[in-house]
Amino acid sequence: MASLAAVLLVLCLLSIALGARGVPLDQVLRALSGHADSRLVENIVWTVRVPRTALGLAAGAALGLAGALMQALTRNPLADPGVLGVSAGAAFAIVFSVAVLGLGSLYGYVWFAFAGALAAGVLVFFLGRLGRSGLTPVKLALAGIAVTSLLTSLTSAVVLTNPDALNRYRFWNAGSLADQTGATVLRVLPFVAAGALLALACAPALNSLALGDDVAASLGRRLGLVRLQGVAAVTLLTGATVSVIGPVVFLGLVIPHAARVLAQRAGVGPDHRWLLPLSALLAPCLLLAADIVGRVVVRPVEIQAGVLIAFIGGPFFIAMVRRRRLAEV
């Protein structure tokens, strides 16, 4: 974890220094300390790149935690935060607010996106708990798939008939940290912090759930309460993130597996008290690295971080799945 924190610090400095206009590290450090060489450097650092980097840190940590939590709740190694329908809810809310309400700015529809994400998460939870057996991993996953399919169909119906909604949806759906301000980061942080606290508080109970519902119940765990807390955490973390930067494919899916491999090599095993913090450190490393590469590889044009993560994450995930060690994790 100390090594990951050091890598993350280096990536933060590179994220502030690199872009369409390169800023030397010594000037970055002087600007961060309030002694910038010029007003232009100060504006680049504090107005553009510091908020972008801070959003990458918050969004990466949120999606990493949400992915690890979702896989633990469903006991499914292929689960990701999108299983709860949160991303689909945010997408439908965006196209609805643009097509029906005529909103055109990020600050206008971002709150609708967050509300749509929360509503989708709540709907999946209540559908999953119907029936005698209550909320189970299988029912939770099935309810999420059903709600996601429904919302995706409604979103497609709207964007096919409204060009403005299609343009907004296309940009949001790519997944990007660009064009964000400090005000946006401050709006997202309370929800991410609340979700992170809920997620970390679930860690001991998740270790019990991994042994099966019967064993967890015999150990005194209240399964319904644990799953409610977990769903609330995933909804807050994913909803706050995707409403601003869009759905970043593979981040919440791949990172928990990488965290398990690191935890196994460190000798702590599949202990969620370590897996969750490791995921929260690994995910922003990957997100910031993808964002940095996207800024410099075809300068001055940018490639969205979500596109690069999908490009890198696909082969990486296939390689991890093929390894025998992953099956043992």
Score class of each variant (00 low, 15 high):
residue 168 R to C: 02
residue 168 R to Y: 02
residue 169 Y to T: 08
residue 169 Y to S: 10
residue 170 R to K: 14
residue 171 F to R: 05
residue 172 W to T: 03
residue 172 W to V: 09
residue 172 W to L: 12
residue 173 N to L: 06
residue 173 N to H: 06
residue 174 A to D: 03
residue 174 A to S: 03
residue 175 G to L: 06
residue 175 G to Q: 01
residue 176 S to Y: 13
residue 176 S to L: 14
residue 176 S to T: 14
residue 177 L to I: 05
residue 177 L to N: 05
residue 178 A to E: 11
residue 179 D to E: 12
residue 180 Q to E: 08
residue 181 T to L: 09
residue 181 T to S: 15
residue 181 T to H: 12
residue 181 T to M: 04
residue 181 T to Q: 11
residue 182 G to R: 03
residue 182 G to W: 02
residue 183 A to T: 12
residue 183 A to Y: 11
residue 183 A to F: 11
residue 184 T to Q: 11
residue 185 V to S: 03
residue 185 V to W: 06
residue 186 L to G: 07
residue 187 R to A: 14
residue 188 V to Q: 01
residue 189 L to Q: 06
residue 189 L to H: 07
residue 190 P to W: 10
residue 191 F to R: 00
residue 191 F to P: 05
residue 192 V to P: 04
residue 193 A to W: 05
residue 193 A to M: 10
residue 194 A to E: 09
residue 194 A to P: 07
residue 195 G to A: 10
residue 195 G to Y: 10
residue 195 G to N: 04
residue 195 G to T: 08
residue 195 G to M: 07
residue 196 A to S: 12
residue 196 A to D: 01
residue 196 A to N: 02
residue 198 L to I: 00
residue 198 L to E: 02
residue 198 L to H: 04
residue 199 A to E: 12
residue 199 A to K: 05
residue 199 A to D: 11
residue 199 A to C: 14
residue 200 L to P: 02
residue 200 L to S: 06
residue 201 A to E: 02
residue 202 C to F: 05
residue 202 C to Y: 08
residue 202 C to G: 00
residue 202 C to A: 15
residue 203 A to S: 11
residue 204 P to E: 13
residue 205 A to G: 12
residue 205 A to M: 12
residue 205 A to K: 14
residue 206 L to E: 09
residue 206 L to S: 03
residue 206 L to T: 03
residue 207 N to K: 03
residue 207 N to F: 05
residue 208 S to H: 12
residue 208 S to N: 10
residue 208 S to P: 02
residue 209 L to P: 08
residue 210 A to H: 00
residue 210 A to C: 03
residue 210 A to W: 00
residue 210 A to S: 15
residue 211 L to D: 07
residue 212 G to N: 09
residue 212 G to F: 02
residue 212 G to W: 01
